[in-house]
Design a binder for these strands. Structure first.
Ligand SMILES: [Mn+2]
Ligand SMILES: [Mn+2]
Ligand SMILES: [Mn+2]
Ligand SMILES: [Mn+2]
Lengths: 211, 211
DNA sequence: ATAATAAGTTAGACATATCTAAAAATACAA
DNA sequence: TTGTATTTTTAGATATGTCTAACTTATTAT
């Protein structure tokens, strides 16, 4: 249920109402599984369900989702900061630890980390009341030629994207100058440092959030 | 399955063969639940099962149990040492985290803690191959009048026992002198420090392992 | 040795979470 | 508007882990 709710929340951020089919795709289950789970979530008051209508997350659902996302992101931060994992190694562990029911545990982790505001991928960590501070970042792919920006967060942090970025020496906080934008496919040539130039595809740049 | 196996291991330490009924009691489930679970554990080669015979844990079962116990005890140690939880607060959290499937996670915790040999209750932490170093401690209740001993471990670490000890200022490593043994009920008067004398019941002393 | 008690097993139920196949409702498009 | 495609739902199966009630086997005591 927690994984469903988290997924619903993520889809909701992109689009107010959610198609059962999309949820099934993201969860890697079939439509009937989602259909029956949604009814349970609705019973808990976390989503609004009416037959044949798209799914809507409720206020209490958002709060509940934020709790789980908070645990996930605090865990990822803990793994990177305290246990020195790389940013591409933490997600699958956090995916498990986020379900641990022990508020004091996450409170202590939070304290130990000095109350971080974002996770190792730049995503905001909800506070313990479920409030998430919106980030005013823009896509690197929306930047103009000549702009100098700082990498602040990733949109989706698939392991393969993280590895690609690591290989190219790109990390949160690094500064990028847009040198060239290819009209044909939207790929961007960036200046990373003094003599280091790299080319990133549009697909990659869509997922890099900068300021 | 992991909780069953851990429980089987704990019972095995006390008694080579295990009664299904005892396991049911410890697991807080009914006999038919144990009966069906035992068959699954047997399929995995972790226990030997023959109808109407007592349960025997196999070598591979012991190794598997030790893995889980290792995760449990490392977690408890981490909670006390790094997150500053008290020894009576850690068990229920460890009971959950022991099921996390992420060997690298526990390796890092182990490293961060400096490869501890025992948990906050003095129980030995199995190494990553499942080997447990036996402890040569004796019960405080088996000590003679006049003996001076050090508290090394607890036999069973129920939250209520831990709280009782904390209230009386007794912790691992503290030295105790046996001053008086009451013939009637086996209760013991101990000298804790210069002018601090306390009385502990036989039941408590049975669970205090000393050297 | 027999009866009583304890321990273990089976059958059948329920809850959870998943699936496939088929049916129903809705949306879209010619 | 009418047919096609998409989305959602239902029915029925499978798997896991639990339960109660009833039955069987083993142990213990007289
Ligand atoms: Mn993640
Ligand atoms: Mn998860
Ligand atoms: Mn414990
Ligand atoms: Mn457990």
């Amino acid at each position: 249920m927690e994984n469903y709710l988290k997924c619903i929340y993520n889809l909701y951020v992109q689009n107010d109402t959610i198609l059962l089919t999309d949820l099934a795709d993201y969860m890697n289950v079939k439509a009937p599984s989602v259909n029956s789970m949604i009814k349970k979530l609705a019973k808990n008051g976390w989503v609004k369900y009416e037959p044949y209508k798209p799914i809507k997350i409720t206020v209490s659902g958002k709060r509940r989702a934020a709790e789980i996302i908070r645990k996930h992101r605090l865990t990822e931060m803990f793994l990177c900061e305290m246990l020195e994992f790389r940013w591409d190694e933490v997600h699958h562990i956090a995916e498990q630890i986020e379900h641990i029911n022990a508020p004091e545990f996450f409170e202590r982790i939070d304290m130990l980390l000095g109350y971080p505001k974002s996770d190792p991928h730049g995503s905001p960590i909800p506070d313990k009341y479920g409030a998430i501070t919106a980030q005013a970042y823009k896509r690197l792919s929306d930047c103009a030629k000549g702009e100098l920006v700082t990498l602040k967060a990733l949109n989706r942090s698939d392991e393969s994207l993280l590895k690609l970025l690591t290989n190219k020496n790109i990390h949160l906080g690094c500064t990028l100058t847009v040198k060239e934008i290819e009209q044909y496919d939207g790929s961007i040539t960036l200046k990373l440092s003094d003599k280091v130039y790299i080319v990133l595809s549009k697909t990659v740049c869509d997922n890099l959030m900068v300021l």
